[in-house]
Design a protein around this nucleic acid. Structure first.
Lengths: 259, 259
DNA sequence: CTTCTGTTAATGTCTATACATAATCGCCCC
DNA sequence: GGGGCGATTATGTATAGACATTAACAGAAG
């Protein structure tokens, strides 16, 4: 235990206590000094070492555990986790925000807008019953007048009935939905495809050119909300993600869609 | 308020108290009942409502804040966060693990292995000084004998000197590195490219076919470790990610590379 | 009306303690 | 030796209180 119980009141030039403990443990793990499988000191050892209460070290170790750096088991204690998988966090931003950050002028065109029953293939992908009425919108996104993405979107009118009368004059469908409809689950699929004639014409590229396709389907408490298939020209856009296993943020990293 | 202050000792048929509070708040946010910008009750209101201590509600709200569902500010209280960006968490798995899960036989071939000074383009990408000695390895990954990925990797021998004598007889370079060298930062770039003649031959596809390219660069406390460029046939592989904003896991979701 | 300042309310961190839970360890008995 | 069983131990959850920090707010001074 600490030599003075009043030591808690003075953070002389440093951050917070739990942060200092966190940094110490993290640096030992990430430097390789504590390899995977290595025993992390018990909570009572750490509270003796840092002269603090168990709640403080418990919070630190719990955070490290939810971040995947250590594995905790009752009675057995904590060990440094195996780095089983690598994670990339892609943050798909709003087109307008992305353009503003890049210093370009954003514009969009609604190419197509219909309300019709879901087709068989989409019903299969989304799990919706045949005959469900969907709003189908095709949007072209332009950065400084140059096509940057081609978006084909289906919106479930059972979940979002107010979309039936929306014509997306001010905001593109993705932004409009994001601001209006919460979602609880999302599924993303990333693929590479060769542009067909229609895509090539819309995105001003040669037929057969490689395109990056991002499909996103979102649900809200089990109810399907929307499916978006966004096609980026392979030569003009790519997705960038950064990740740090020790980051304390919501997803452990940040990322952005970049030209 | 609770009808009985001694209720804390009896979780009759439910989970834990903090989890119940969490679920309540999360469902109100994600159902849209509390839209972005809506005020979340103050901590003392919640402790009155649930008949618990402030530490308990504080932990709940802090967790929701780090997960990005709410924004907290001193004196002003907490509000439901704006859903500014959508996140996709891609979990890039070990090839062998992925194959085992898919029920296929995994095999790999080292096509090329040299040690040479870094070239100008790679020096620019990685920020390494010209002349740094790098191990360059090209690997073909096969699932049931079919090429599934083509990997070009550079390993910094200053950071990983033991790689100089490694010939990857048992494990492919990615797996070998992951088990041996910790990393603290990673950067990912996803692109779509048309296969050139060499790639098409290796991956048994037509020249010009679209390929998904994942580039990953990793650092360890500022020191560059490795760069991997993994090319997947666009028609055979895609990346799948799932994400739930309320998930409590390390990155708020899970994902996998799938055929 | 503006700016400065002191109050105050809400969150952030930490302590000391208590009991619950789970799993390992060692012991006993067969 | 092996199998069951209780004791031990580390973590998981929760409490009640304390002080620090910050920023919104109101009132005073110019």
């Amino acid at each position: 235990m600490n030599n003075d119980t009043s030591a808690k009141k003075q953070p002389p030039g440093m951050k917070h206590l739990h942060q200092r403990i966190r940094d110490d443990i993290e640096s030992r793990i990430m430097s390789g000094q504590w390899p995977p499988g290595h025993r992390v000191p018990f909570e009572h050892q750490l509270m003796a070492e840092y002269g603090c209460s168990r709640m403080t070290v418990n919070k630190v170790l719990s955070t490290l555990a939810t971040n995947g750096l250590i594995t905790r088991r009752r009675r057995a204690g904590s060990v440094v986790a195996e780095p089983s998988t690598q994670r990339a966090v892609l943050e798909i931003q709003d087109f307008a925000l992305e353009a503003a950050r890049a210093g370009t002028v954003y514009r969009f065109q609604i190419l197509h807008r219909t309300i019709e029953p879901i087709d068989a293939a989409a019903a299969q992908r989304t799990g919706l019953p045949a005959g469900t009425r969907m709003l189908s919108v095709t949007t072209l996104h332009l950065m400084d007048g140059v096509p940057g993405a081609y978006e084909q979107r289906l919106i479930n009118l059972d979940t979002v009935p107010e979309a039936a009368t929306e014509h997306f004059a001010n905001d593109p469908p993705g932004t409009w939905l994001l601001r209006r409809v919460p979602w609880t689950d999302a599924e993303h699929v990333l693929r590479a495809v060769n542009a067909d004639a229609e895509l090539a014409r819309r995105l001003q590229m040669k037929t057969g050119a490689a395109c990056l396709v991002l499909e996103r389907r979102t649900w809200q408490a089990g109810a399907f909300v929307t499916e978006a298939r966004i096609t980026y020209p392979g030569d003009r856009h790519h997705l960038i993600g950064r990740f740090s296993p020790a980051a304390q943020g919501p997803a452990g990293g940040s990322a952005a869609v970049s030209p």
